[in-house]
C-alpha cells in the first residue's frame, strides 16, 4: 500500500466484454475511477451491474478486456479489494455467528491453514462496532433482521481492510436506520482515503450519496461527476427512454451526503 503511485487510478477498466451465453451482457466497457470517490453504478435490471463487479473480481470470466486495480491485475492487488456481495447470495441459516462471518474478512490475510485468533477476533469486534452491531456479535446469523445481515456483510468487508470496495446493492431491502448507517460508513471510508463502488437502484438518492456515477446498460452510457453526468437525458439513454423520470424534489443538492434524508 505504501508504494502506491498517487497517479494510478484505483480502478481502470478497458474493453471489458462479458457474455453468459452467446449474447454479451457487457460490451466493451471502458472507464476509470478516481481515488477517494463514492461511485454509484446505476442502470436498469439486466444492465450488467453485478456482472461488471464479478468480472472485475474474476468471479465471471471475461471474453476480452482487462480491469486494473491500482495499475495491476486483480490477482496481484487482490488484498486491496473488499467485496460486499448481494445479501441473498448466501444461506443465512448457516451455523455461525455474526462475529464469525466478520472474521471471514481476515481469512485472506491469514492464508491457508492458519486459524483466526484473538487479534482477528478483536478486529472483527471493532468492525461490528463501526456498523452498530457490536451487541449482536454472538447472535446466530439467521436471527438477525435483513438490515442487520447487511451490516454484518459490510463489517466483513471492513475487516478486509481494503482500499477499494465493491458493494452489490447494499441498500436493497434495508430500513431507513440501516440505510443511514451505511451512508455514514461510506463517508467514513471516503474520509479514510478509500474508494467505493456501489450498485444502486434508488435514483432519488443518487445525487445525495455519490460523488460520481457510472451509468450502465450493457455498455457504459456515461461515467463522471454526479452533477454533470447524472442528468435526465443521460438517464433516459441508460434506461432506454422507458423511464418515467420523476424530477428530483427540491432536496439539498449533492455534497450533503451523509446527512441522509
Amino acid at each position: 500500500m505504501t508504494n502506491r503511485n498517487r497517479n494510478v487510478p484505483p480502478l481502470a477498466v478497458s474493453g471489458l466484454t462479458v457474455a453468459y451465453r452467446k449474447k454479451p451482457v457487457l460490451r466493451d466497457v471502458t472507464f476509470e475511477i478516481d481515488e477517494r470517490q463514492l461511485v454509484g453504478i446505476i442502470g436498469p435490471n439486466g444492465a450488467g451491474k453485478s456482472t461488471l463487479i464479478k468480472a472485475i473480481l474474476g468471479l465471471q470470466p471475461a471474453l476480452s478486456g482487462e480491469a486494473l486495480i491500482y495499475g495491476k491485475p486483480y490477482k496481484v492487488n487482490r488484498k486491496l479489494v473488499g467485496y460486499v456481495p448481494q445479501r441473498e447470495s448466501v444461506d443465512w441459516d448457516f451455523p455461525t455467528s455474526a462475529l464469525d462471518v466478520v472474521m471471514m474478512g481476515r481469512y485472506g490475510h491469514l492464508g491457508l491453514f492458519r486459524r483466526p485468533g484473538a487479534r482477528e477476533r478483536e478486529l472483527a469486534m471493532d468492525c461490528l462496532d463501526k456498523v452498530g452491531m457490536a451487541d449482536f456479535a454472538h447472535r446466530q446469523i439467521s436471527q438477525l433482521s435483513g438490515g442487520q445481515q447487511q451490516r454484518v456483510f459490510l463489517a466483513r468487508a471492513l475487516a478486509q481492510d481494503a482500499t477499494l470496495y465493491f458493494m452489490d446493492e447494499p441498500f436493497a431491502g434495508v430500513d431507513a436506520a440501516t440505510e443511514k448507517a451505511i451512508v455514514t460508513l461510506l463517508n467514513e471510508l471516503k474520509r479514510n482515503g478509500k474508494t467505493v463502488l456501489v450498485v444502486h437502484h434508488d435514483l432519488a438518492t443518487v445525487a445525495d450519496y455519490f460523488d460520481s456515477v457510472l451509468l450502465l446498460n450493457g455498455e457504459v452510457i456515461a461515467c463522471g461527476p454526479t452533477e454533470t453526468t447524472f442528468t435526465p437525458e443521460r438517464l433516459q439513454q441508460a434506461y432506454g427512454g422507458k423511464l418515467a423520470f420523476v424530477a428530483r424534489s427540491e432536496r439539498e443538492p449533492a455534497g450533503a451526503a451523509g446527512n441522509g434524508r
Binding site: 468471479l59 487482490r78 456481495p85 447470495s89 481469512y107 485472506g108
Partner: peptide, 12 residues
C-alpha cells in the same frame, strides 16, 4: 460452504 464466491475473491 457459506460463501464460495467471497472466498474466491479473497484469493482462496
Amino acid at each position: 460452504c457459506f460463501d464460495p464466491g467471497y472466498g474466491r475473491g479473497l484469493g482462496f
